[in-house]
Design a protein around this nucleic acid. Structure first.
Length: 471
RNA sequence: GGCGACGUAGCCAAGUGGUAAGGCGAGGGUCUGCAAAACCCUUAUUCAGCGGUUCGAAUCCGCUCGUCGCCUCCA
């Protein structure tokens, strides 16, 4: 597939053809969570987008190398650990575990690297040393600050005029010593009781922004292809990353910046005070499906706010049901005669339209419309008895191809697989029921149908016979 | 106050100059012993409102109304 990928680069705010630095290879850095609490569905929306990105790149022919950091040292993790009376690592470990579990539940692929900030302190120190040596940073009371005034390009990503934006802002208590309120901290001098590492400026810990710069360049190189995060990270986090990295290396840091919009709940920003801050386990506990949530995430363009409602999640579940039903009917359809040329055409059209949708700045809505057009064609073919030799695997393989990107169409992959195999007994009961129907003993047949329904087995009588499925 | 995004049918959502994709829901039909399920068909003369540009606008421009975001930790 040689479809050219176009992406919206926040740096420059326009659509651009994507060109990787190394042909055929995409190197991606994504800002992961700060592991001080459980992630909510808003966070997960962003990670689902990043998963879509990496899968799409692969679909369009790229090899992907991706790193996602885990920020396990910052004000919040330190405070949390202190309040819980445990070490930093003891405090963050469970949140890392549940984060990775949530990703797995949503079928978000493991990325190649999950660097933890606490395990990469030396490269951060080296980066800061370089900045100090080059005059971009200065030391003050054991802390190190980046000097915005030394970086004429500062503000390029966010488009903010810092002269206007941050004058008169209050300086945080632990950041006295700045020469300019707009400067940001690279290294924070230790405070009593806090975890700390040795450095040329004394004991302390890295600032948040420097973590990502150091780790991304360490793993992916001084210039890499894609850097993603939520829109809230554009300023100041990503702006600062650019300033640090490019000042240190003199090279472009990231070629393309991608930012995903936020998720809203009932039209409002999630917040603890509104009580609308859901986690994935919250939704699962309500009996809602992670698969439907993934579909919902995928169905809204990443640069569009996603308004989460239970109704929209129902809609997502309904859409998946339609795909599942088609596969179910296909499974029971009989292949006879020559392959249907219409189906082959439909399959080609799906592959083409699907790839074209993805290539257009990851327009999944268009890609999904192609899937549903295909579903309809297959349904009609089944209805008209046009399923020929080899058509079933053709349909299944085509869906499997697009599902390598979507990761949501194959119900079997999401099945919890619980329960013993009692299908032989079910088949026996169905036969018994159909015998009763033959004798027009409807009381008996309805009784069996009721029994099966009570066990969660739904029957469908069709002209080709009775088929069943678990509800 | 500065910067920005958005407003398309009951709901979700594509489309950014050539005459409204798709999904859910709803209505009708087919099938059925009856059902259920499923499938098929139908479902926006119209894109927040008002002006303007144009042969032509949901798409471009202006104004108004509304929603949301960033500017401080934040996906």
């Amino acid at each position: 597939m040689t479809t050219e990928l176009v992406l919206f680069n926040t740096l420059g705010r326009k659509l651009e053809p994507f060109r990787s630095q190394v042909p055929g290879e995409a190197r991606i850095y994504t800002c992961g969570p700060t592991v001080y609490n459980e992630v909510h569905i808003g966070n997960l929306r962003t990670f689902a987008f990043q998963d879509l990105l990496r899968r799409s790149l692969r679909h369009l022919g790229y090899r992907v190398v991706q790193a996602m950091n885990l920020t396990d040292v910052d004000d919040k993790t330190i405070q949390g650990a202190h309040q819980a009376g445990v070490s930093l690592a003891e405090y963050t470990e469970p949140f890392i575990r549940t984060f990775l579990r949530d990703l797995e539940t949503l079928h978000v692929e493991r990325v190649e690297h999950f660097p933890k900030a606490t395990e990469h302190i030396p490269p951060m120190i080296r980066l800061i040393e370089t900045l100090v040596a080059k005059g971009y940073a200065y030391v003050s009371d054991g802390s190190v600050f980046f000097s915005i005034a030394k970086d004429p390009d500062y503000g390029r990503l966010s488009g903010f005029d810092l002269d206007q934006a941050r004058r008169g802002e209050r300086v945080a208590a632990d950041e006295y010593g700045k020469e300019d309120v707009r400067d940001f901290v690279l290294w924070k001098a230790v405070k009593p009781g806090e975890p700390a590492w040795d450095s040329p400026w004394g004991s302390g810990r890295p600032g948040w922004h420097v973590e990502c710069s150091a780790m991304s360049m360490e793993i992916l190189g001084e210039t890499f292809d894609l850097h993603c995060g939520g829109v809230d990270l554009i300023f100041p986090h990503h702006e600062n990353e650019i300033a640090q990295s490019e000042s240190a290396t003199g090279k472009p840091f990231v070629r393309t910046w991608l930012h995903s919009e936020h998720l809203l709940v009932d039209g409002q920003k999630m917040s603890k005070s509104l009580g609308n801050q859901y986690t994935l386990p919250d939704l699962l506990a309500r009996g809602l499906s992670a698969r439907a949530l993934r579909y919902l995430f995928l169905s809204v363009h990443y640069r569009q706010k996603l308004n989460f409602t239970f109704e929209s999640l129902d809609g997502a579940a309904g859409a998946l049901r339609r795909v599942d039903e088609m596969r179910f009917r296909l499974l029971h359809a009989e292949e006879k005669g020559a392959p249907d040329p219409h189906l082959a055409e439909a399959a080609d059209r799906l592959r083409r339209d699907f790839a074209a949708g993805l290539a257009d700045d990851l327009n999944v809505a268009v890609a999904l419309a192609a899937v549903f057009a295909f579903v309809k064609e297959v349904n009609v073919a089944i209805e008209e008895g046009r399923i020929g030799q080899g058509d079933k695997p053709r349909v299944v393989d085509t869906l499997a191809d697009v599902d390598r990107v979507l990761g949501v169409l194959d119900a079997m992959a999401w099945d919890t697989g619980a329960g013993e195999d009692d299908s032989a007994e079910i088949e026996r009961l169905i036969k018994e029921r159909n015998d009763a129907r033959q004798r027009r003993d409807f009381a008996a047949s309805d009784r069996i149908r009721g029994e099966l329904a009570a066990r969660g087995i739904a029957l469908e009588d069709t002209p080709q016979g009775t088929r069943w499925k678990r509800k």
